[in-house]
Simulated scan of single mutants.
Amino acid sequence: MIDVILKKGKEKAAMLRHPWIFSGAIDKIKGNPENGEVVTLRSAAKEFLAYAYYNDQSRVALRLLEWDENTTINKSWYREKLKAAIASRDHVLNENTNTCRLVFSEADFLPGLIVDKYAGFLSLQILSAGMESIKATLIELLRELLNPTGIFDKSDAGARKHENLEATQGLLWGETPPEFIEVKENGILYHINIADGQKSGFYCDQRDNRKILADYTRGKSVLDCFCYSGGFTLNSLKSGAASVTSVDSSALAIETLQHNLELNGFKGSNQHSIQSDVNKQLRIFKDEGKTFDVLVLDPPKYAPSRSALDRAARAYKDLNRLGMLLLKKGGILATFSCSGAVDMETFKQIIAWAALDAGREVQIIRQFCQPEDHPVSLSFPEGEYLKGLLLRIL
């Protein structure tokens, strides 16, 4: 196996089991590894550190896999990692929920691999050259372990560019997914189109948070912003909300929401959908003098990297300021950020600035996070991307 030697003093991250080594930390390479090949990582003193995927096209040149020198990275190794990841989600899946994330990349010691379950179908997303090189093995093992109806490739994320990989999408094995797969989450039905990400609008990372917030919506007027396919809207209606107004700029999202309302028997309920830019619509509501009891702000990723942090902070602040102005005294604001570059303390500071500008006193009554099928490794805090606050606006 080819050895990759680190510069002196650059071994600490690997020894602490952080799964990334950046290209600038490499001193020399003994051999000529192909991108995606498993190599041996060694310190400047030639001590074994880990086995890792290598990619000279990526800023993250090494993605660490295994820290036991006596372990062989082979088909059996991948089988055991997949089995462990799948088994840890067994209790998430039940008669009320048949969709979840089965593999979450570095957190499950499979860097660059994401596997989502949608009823009988699997969605496979590969984001590293190493996982791309063993795609056929992964398909074989997922068939063996899960016996799915079909496996669909959703490796169309922009992150593949960083690994010098082209976007791919299409059927990998089994039956082609129907236009809509019917899934159930918290007892609520959704139709998911995994063959076209634009038609899905469904994010299972908000599963727990949707259920938690629903308890605060009973008998209340709710404004669900960036509603997508209606997760917070549907949970609020199921919980007995007096009214729900759902806003999204995407016509397809509104169309999907209407479909899911009908699917769950909520068509004709006290629900109103608006296709509009959220910031614009919040200003319209303010000018009209409208107020709500509960407001949900679940925007897309404003800060894809740390370089975008300042701009994102301004966007989050203005959005939350507008939201606070629309809430009745004692109202509830559920506000989220899915930007990995924005940590919880930074997010709290942004919300504090928004409250100051809005002239509202605000209490934090709960913190939201991603669910257990999106675990965060203590050695890889970067995996904690979803955070949120449940606020009382005084």
Rank of each mutant, 00 (worst) to 15 (best):
K238Q: 15
S243P: 03
E255G: 08
A242V: 08
A241H: 00
D248Y: 05
S239F: 00
T233V: 15
L234P: 11
A253M: 09
G231Y: 08
K238E: 15
L237D: 11
G231C: 10
D248W: 05
S239P: 00
S250Y: 05
A241G: 02
T245Q: 14
G231D: 06
L252M: 11
G230E: 03
T245K: 07
V244A: 06
A242K: 14
G240R: 06
T256D: 13
D248I: 01
N235T: 08
H259K: 01
S249G: 10
S250G: 02
Q258M: 01
L252C: 07
E255W: 09
S243E: 02
L237K: 10
K238H: 05
L257Q: 11
F232A: 14
N260W: 14
A242W: 05
G240M: 10
S249W: 14
K238V: 06
S236E: 03
L237Y: 08
T256E: 14
A251Y: 14
S243Q: 01
N260F: 10
D248F: 04
G231M: 12
V247S: 04
L252N: 12
F232M: 10
T233F: 13
N235F: 08
L257K: 02
S239K: 00
I254R: 04
K238C: 11
L252F: 09
F232I: 10
A253S: 15
Q258N: 06
A242G: 05
S250A: 04
V244P: 04
L261H: 01
K238S: 06
V244T: 02
A251M: 09
V247A: 03
G240K: 04
L261W: 05
S246M: 12
L234S: 08
T256R: 15
L257R: 05
A253Q: 08
E255A: 12
G240S: 07
S249C: 12
T233G: 13
D248R: 07
G230V: 13
L257W: 07
T245V: 15
S250F: 01
H259P: 01
E255V: 08
G230C: 07
L261Q: 07
S249F: 13
S243R: 09
S250V: 02
S239Q: 02
S249A: 15
T256W: 08
A251T: 11
N235W: 06
A253D: 09
S236Y: 02
T233Y: 10
L261Y: 04
A253C: 13
H259A: 05
L234G: 13
D248P: 11
A241D: 04
S246Y: 13
G231W: 12
S239C: 00
L261E: 00
T256S: 14
N260Y: 11
K238W: 07
L234N: 15
Q258W: 02
S236P: 03
S249D: 11
L237N: 07
L252I: 11
F232K: 13
E255C: 09
L252W: 11
L234H: 11
S249P: 10
N260D: 15
Q258S: 02
G230S: 10
F232P: 08
H259D: 01
T256A: 15
A241I: 07
F232E: 14
V247C: 06
S249M: 14
I254L: 06
G230I: 02
S246A: 15
N260T: 08
K238Y: 12
T245P: 03
F232N: 12
L257I: 08
